[in-house]
Every structure is written in structure tokens, then in C-alpha cells.
């Protein structure tokens, strides 16, 4: 799975590369508009992370080039501007997602995987982890052929943790992902604890071979039992 990160901030690029490489992706970086344009011209990527503000050009122009070539690459716009105009324009031009900075690594992984699922595994959208199968389009979960009844949010939490399997998913990141941007001013995210507890109970009741582990009180990690 090849990923191109277009990002002019070297440390940002390094963080993102390290993070995605740990997931087993093949990551290439491009720090300028020209560099990115050259790479796109030569190689095919499964997913491109695109910063809009580049020192020598606008990332949206790159998006136009990608779409004009008819490349099937999934594109996620990563921007510090968090501007509605950029978001709408980007999505209009054919970007798959828009991720405003700053973001949590877990969120980046979840978004990249969602795009890859849509792009690469078209139609074949069943995720298998241990003895659990998640049907993405139906939003259903089965363990050993038996359906696990989950409400909307429990499903979102599970999918998020599955996308970040064996990795730490930060509590705040999880809350923002499932409960939306607007929950971010909440006093604390203690309520997530009871959500995870419920989810664990349901998984255990179905003898799932996965476990949700609390990490230092920072977040959670989904792993094989």
C-alpha cells in the first residue's frame, strides 16, 4: 500500500511518515509543489495526503492535476487553515476527506484506512479481525456468525479501535471522532470509560478473541487476546 505525503513542514512530515510506516504502509514524502507534481507524474499511490499551503503553490492545484489524470488515488486534504471554503472546494474537486490540523495520529490512521477501504476494497468491504467480522456498508458486526447488537456509537468506537489495531487510540481523539468536533469542549472524557465498558461486555458475551485494553489512562488499544 503506497502513500504519498505532501507536506512542507519537515517535522510534520516525519511524524506522519513514522506513524503510517508503523502500519506497514510504504510512505513517500514531498515537501514542495514541484516535488509532489513530479512524484504524481511517475508513480501511482493508493492514498495521497495533501497539504494545501505549499511554499511554491496551492495543494488544490495538485488535486486538479491528480483528478485530470483520472488517477484513482484517494486524496485526503490536510490543512492548517481549517477553512470552510477550502474544505468545500477540495471536496468539490474530488478529495475524499478533509482533515484539519492539529489531529491525532489515531484519527489520521482511521481516515487513511477508511479511504483505502473505499478505494481499494470496492464492494468487498468486510473487515476480519480474529474471530470478528465487520461489514462496513451495513454497519454490522458478527462474531462466529452471530451478530453483536451495537448501537451507532458503539459501532463507531469499535471500528475506530479496529482501524487502530495494536496502536494507541487517544481518548480525546476517540471522543472527537465518534461524538463529533463539537464535543471537544466537554469538561472531560470520563464518559468514554462507561462506553468502553459496555462494548467490552458485549464483546466478551460473544467470546470475541479481541480485547480493548486501557493504556495509562491516556487511551485504549485493541489487540488480540
Amino acid at each position: 500500500m503506497k502513500i504519498l505525503i505532501v507536506e512542507d513542514e519537515p517535522q510534520m512530515l516525519e511524524n506522519m511518515s513514522k506513524n503510517l510506516e508503523a502500519e506497514g504502509f510504504l510512505v513517500t514524502g514531498a515537501a514542495t509543489f514541484a516535488q509532489a507534481r513530479d512524484r504524481i507524474g511517475v508513480y501511482d499511490y493508493d492514498c495521497i495526503l495533501l497539504d494545501i499551503n505549499l511554499p511554491d503553490g496551492n495543494g488544490l492545484e495538485l488535486l486538479k492535476i491528480i483528478k485530470k489524470k483520472g488517477l484513482g488515488d484517494g486524496v485526503i486534504i490536510v490543512s492548517a487553515k481549517d477553512s470552510l471554503d477550502d474544505k468545500l472546494q477540495g471536496l468539490d474537486l474530488g478529495a475524499d476527506d478533509y482533515l484539519p490540523k492539529p489531529f491525532h495520529m489515531a484519527e489520521l490512521r482511521a481516515r487513511v484506512k477508511a479511504v483505502l477501504r473505499r478505494k481499494i476494497f470496492e464492494g468487498q468491504d468486510e473487515l476480519r479481525i480474529a474471530n470478528m467480522a465487520i461489514n462496513i456498508s451495513n454497519r454490522t458486526v458478527f462474531i462466529e456468525k452471530k451478530e453483536v447488537e451495537l448501537n451507532r456509537k458503539e459501532y463507531d468506537v469499535l471500528l475506530y479501535l479496529v482501524s487502530n489495531k495494536d496502536r494507541l487510540a487517544n481518548k480525546t481523539a476517540l471522543a472527537e471522532h465518534v461524538w463529533g468536533d463539537h464535543i471537544d469542549q466537554a469538561d472531560n472524557f470520563d464518559f468514554i470509560y462507561s462506553q468502553i465498558k459496555n462494548l467490552r461486555k458485549k464483546l466478551d458475551a460473544h467470546d470475541a478473541e479481541i480485547d480493548i485494553k486501557a493504556v495509562y489512562g491516556i487511551g485504549y488499544k485493541l489487540q488480540d487476546k
Partner: peptide, 15 residues
């Protein structure tokens, strides 16, 4: 936004 993103992500990698 960018420095915040870098700092948060570096800490996450450290975890």
C-alpha cells in the same frame, strides 16, 4: 495549528 500538531503527534509517537 502546525506547531501544535507536531507537538501532539510527537508525544503520541513517544507513547
Amino acid at each position: 495549528q502546525t506547531p501544535l500538531a507536531i507537538a501532539i503527534n510527537k508525544l503520541e509517537l513517544l507513547f
